[in-house]
């Protein structure tokens, strides 16, 4: 199971670099009205760590999480712009997942406060947060194996009177809701290429399909903000393209997206704003193109002082990477 973790990522990129080159990705970018508006708004924001956004949906201040002596997360201030796609990047172990866990109530911080839609949520339970519109997916996929794909979807739908013990006894109370939810679920499954699998057990899906199911399932909750932990990991390149399209469509529907991703090309092509973490801290933020040239970011990823842009295709070449690593070791 853990094979679908990040360790797989570089291998995937190196084996099929052609399909993810800039042109194919550029072709998938929907040049929507919303996209232009968001870009315009964020263009006015100064690209520096902790900067205030014009319309933040999420604001975190002074968030710290320590494991023993090690500080996994130490975020002074972060604001996430409403209706934008924000990417959270950083090397392995940077604290991205831990930060996600803290924000979504799956872990307790040593200190810190944060608010969602203007409400303090630092001590709110994960379930309550999800109900208030902040839904997440997990890096290690959590498919509900012995439920079918469709049941996975239906389970996620909010406000079902049949989920109350007494309501459950009377089918007429919930059969209508179930029917509407089923239609909605099938429509979303269609978008994620899972419609044929609807009656299969989720446990029988492949790793990539589970990723897709988890994302589709999250959408069933009608979130205001969706937080995806490596949604593209283990998904084949052709599907990555359509996935990127879906994510942009979500933004165009008014949803806020915050996602963790190691695939720099995906990040560069769909995100409106990029936040970079390294060793628990946020080391840079800004629009994708400028952030990837930021020296602090390149340092965080590749070791100090390379004048390489992270989005550079040459980094997909194992030979180039090996050379960079060798140089780093010599220092």
């Amino acid at each position: 199971m853990s094979a679908e973790n990040t360790t797989e990522k570089p291998a995937e990129n190196t084996t099929e670099p052609v399909e993810l080159d800039d042109e194919t990705l550029a072709a998938t970018v929907v040049d929507s009205e919303t996209a232009r508006q968001v870009t315009e708004t964020l263009a006015g924001v100064e690209p520096k760590v902790g900067v205030a956004k014009p319309d933040p949906i999420l604001r975190a201040t002074g968030v710290q999480r320590r494991f023993g002596g090690m500080t996994a997360v130490d975020v002074d201030h972060l604001e996430v712009q409403r209706g934008a796609i924000t990417a959270l990047i950083g090397p392995n172990g940077a604290g991205k997942t831990t930060f996600f866990n803290l924000l979504t109530g799956f872990d307790k911080p040593n200190q810190g406060t944060w608010e969602f839609e203007g409400k303090q949520i630092a001590r709110t339970s994960a379930a309550k947060l999800a109900r208030s519109g902040m839904v997440r997916t997990f890096q290690l996929t959590k498919a509900l194996s012995r439920l079918t794909v469709l049941q996975n979807m239906l389970l996620a739908a909010p406000d079902n009177p049949g989920e109350n013990l007494f309501g459950a006894l009377f089918r007429p109370l919930w059969s209508g809701v179930e029917k509407r939810n089923t239609e909605k679920a099938l429509e979303i499954l269609e978008r994620f290429n899972l419609a044929q699998k609807k009656d299969d057990f989720a446990g029988s899906l492949s790793g990539g399909q589970r990723k897709l199911l988890e994302m589709a399932r999250a959408l069933m909750t009608d979130p205001a903000m969706i937080m995806l932990d490596e949604p593209m990991a283990g998904v084949n390149p052709a599907l990555v393209q359509s996935l990127l399209g879906h994510i942009q469509a979500l933004r165009d529907d008014g949803m806020t997206v915050l996602f963790v991703e190691h695939d720099m090309h995906a990040v560069r092509h769909i995100s409106d704003w990029v936040v970079v973490m390294a060793e628990g801290r946020i080391v840079a933020e800004g629009p994708p193109t400028s952030v990837m040239q930021d020296q602090a970011v390149v340092d965080a990823y590749l070791g100090a002082h390379h004048d390489t842009d992270l989005g550079d295709d040459s980094l997909l070449d194992p030979a180039v990477l090996a050379r960079l690593e060798a140089e780093e070791e010599k220092r």
Partner: peptide, 27 residues
């Protein structure tokens, strides 16, 4: 009656992975 209902589905979801169910907003 209760296990064929959405309530029963939540129970089965919890059996499979309670964090996933929590992430979907269920208590």
């Amino acid at each position: 009656l209760i296990t064929r209902s959405p309530w029963g589905r939540v129970l089965k979801g919890i059996r499979e992975d309670e964090d996933a169910v929590r992430a979907l907003g269920k208590n």
